[in-house]
């Protein structure tokens, strides 16, 4: 745990991997803000728990809309005055072969995964520039590197996030801001969408670690990347997949 509580924004933290990331930063004593289009029982738990209620902020927001992203970041800055860490985790997938994918599905995935990440990174990096410090982590995916049948649009956005990571690292490095990405493998979360049990077991058999990942596996890597002591590492992608693509 760092000596001063950090102000941490984690997008899409109401469930799945995002919720695991929120829990990790609450456990390390930080102030955590998250958003999603609607709340969940987990969000209500953090809001009601006396141990976390004054260190937790939830704002309903659809980050595919620039105005919502602005409202969210403004709410965080109004409450805590700064942002130390941004984790761009919010994402959506629509599976199906590209030849049958609708315009709406392409827009939905690109608008949230890519444009939402750009909106949030723009808003937060501006404020980090003023303070000359901060960390940004983009949650990409191994499918952005290896591809996956039926996830062409999703894979494209995840590969784009890694390009954004490298470009932004170069842009912001001289201002004391690190930008990295984490490419998780297959996790036991709702984002393992469209995979039946047989497919999941096949993935487990091919994974050297012999299991699917947990949100905590990713959270520990994220804590490492956002530790201010690790400010010589930027522009990198950490693959957390149990060795599946190693």
């Amino acid at each position: 745990m760092t000596s001063e509580p950090r102000v941490v924004i984690i997008t899409g933290g109401s469930r799945g991997l995002g919720a695991g990331l929120v829990q990790s930063y609450l456990d390390s004593g930080d102030r955590v803000a998250t958003c999603s289009r609607s709340g969940t029982p987990q969000v209500e738990t953090w809001q009601d728990d006396p141990d976390t209620s004054d260190r937790f902020l939830f704002v309903p927001a659809d980050l595919s809309k620039s105005a919502d992203a602005e409202t969210f970041v403004k709410a965080v800055v109004d409450r805590w005055g700064q942002v130390d860490v941004l984790v761009n985790n919010a994402g959506v997938a629509r599976d199906g072969v590209l030849g049958l994918t609708s315009d709406d599905d392409i827009d939905t995935v690109i608008d949230l995964n890519l444009k939402g990440t750009l909106y949030m990174s723009r808003l937060v990096s501006r404020r980090m520039l003023v303070r000359k410090r901060g960390s940004i982590v983009n949650i990409s995916s191994i499918v952005g590197r290896s591809g996956y049948r039926g996830l062409a649009v999703y894979s494209a956005t995840k590969a784009a996030q890694e390009g954004l990571t490298r470009a932004l690292a170069r842009e912001l490095g001289s201002s004391g801001i690190t930008v990295n990405a984490i490419a998780p493998g297959y996790l036991r979360t709702e984002m393992s969408h469209g995979l039946d049990e047989a497919q999941l077991q096949q993935i487990v058999r091919r994974t050297p670690a012999g299991r699917l990942g947990d949100p905590e596996d990713v959270a520990r890597a994220c804590q490492f990347l956002t530790d201010p002591r690790n400010n010589y590492m930027t522009g990198q992608v950490l693959v957390i997949d149990g060795g599946l693509t190693g």
Binding site: S125, L129, S175
Partner: peptide, 13 residues
């Protein structure tokens, strides 16, 4: 350009 972005954020704040 980065200093311009910083000035922009400072004015907004």
């Amino acid at each position: 350009s980065l200093e311009a972005a910083e000035l922009s954020a400072t004015l907004e704040d």
